[in-house]
Amino acid sequence: MSESAHQGPGHKGAAHLVEMANDIAAFFSGAGHAPAAAADGVADHLRKFWDPRMRRKLIAYGHQGGAGLSDAARLALVKLEAATASANAAE
């Protein structure tokens, strides 16, 4: 985990979000699911259970290189961002 993910005293910044996203990805990667297949489950989970602020932070962190994110988590963020953009466009 890069130090840049930390943001201040008593606060883990994006580092904690990265860990959480990786844990979610680990579940959906069970039974040898490829990252692409797991990413749908991860994106759906983030959409259903994460406050939008947390999702935005992690997407932004992904844009900065996303150090430490697993492949499935990284792919999920791309899917999540695309879905959010198309939903916004539809409104």
Binding site: Q7, G8, G10, H11, F49, W50, D51, P52, R53, M54
Partner: peptide, 18 residues
């Protein structure tokens, strides 16, 4: 229509002054 913060997320958001 979007989920809110869970308890641990509230703590993180407090430290972010959000």
């Amino acid at each position: 229509n979007e989920p809110g913060l869970r308890i641990p997320n509230m703590f993180e958001a407090a430290l972010d002054r959000e």
